[in-house]
C-alpha cells in the first residue's frame, strides 16, 4: 500500500462505518464478535476488530442501538446489539444521502459529470 492509503481509508471509514454497523443490525440483533467478523471479512471496513467496541459504545450512547444479554451455547451470556427506532431512522437517512454522494464522487473521479 502506498503511504497515505491508510489515512484516507481511516477518514472514509469514520463517516460510513457506523452506518454499516447499523445496516448489519437491521434484520437481527448481533453480538460484538459476530459484528467484528462480518466487518473484517473484506479487510476494508474494519482495520482491527478492537476498534469496533468504542464505536458500538458510541452508537448506544447516541441511542441508535440497544443492548440485551442473551445466552450462548458456549460460555457466558453475550451482549447483543439491536437497532432502535432512532437507529432505523438514522440508517434510512444515511441510505438516502449515500447514493447521491457516492454517485457524485464516482462521476467526479472519473472525469466530471457525464
Amino acid at each position: 500500500m502506498v503511504p497515505g492509503d491508510d489515512i484516507i481509508l481511516t477518514q472514509l471509514r469514520r463517516g460510513a462505518l457506523e452506518y454499516c454497523v447499523l445496516a448489519l443490525l437491521e434484520r437481527d440483533a448481533l453480538y460484538g464478535l459476530d459484528i467484528a467478523r462480518r466487518l473484517t471479512a473484506d479487510g476494508v471496513l474494519l482495520a482491527s476488530e478492537g476498534t469496533l467496541y468504542p464505536l458500538l459504545a458510541r452508537l448506544r450512547k447516541a441511542g441508535l442501538v440497544d443492548t440485551s444479554w442473551q445466552e450462548s451455547t458456549e460460555g457466558p451470556p453475550r451482549r447483543y446489539y439491536a437497532l432502535t427506532g432512532e437507529g432505523r431512522e438514522s440508517l434510512a437517512a444515511f441510505r438516502r444521502t449515500w447514493k447521491p454522494f457516492r454517485d457524485a464522487v464516482d462521476s467526479t473521479l472519473s472525469g466530471g459529470p457525464s
Binding site: 453480538y31 460484538g32 464478535l33 478492537g50 467496541y53 459504545a57 460460555g75 451482549r79
Partner: peptide, 17 residues
Amino acid sequence: GERAEVLAGVREHLEGT
C-alpha cells in the same frame, strides 16, 4: 461508563475467540 463498556466488549470478544 464508556470505558467500562469498551473493556467489557473487548473482554467478551476475547472470551469468544
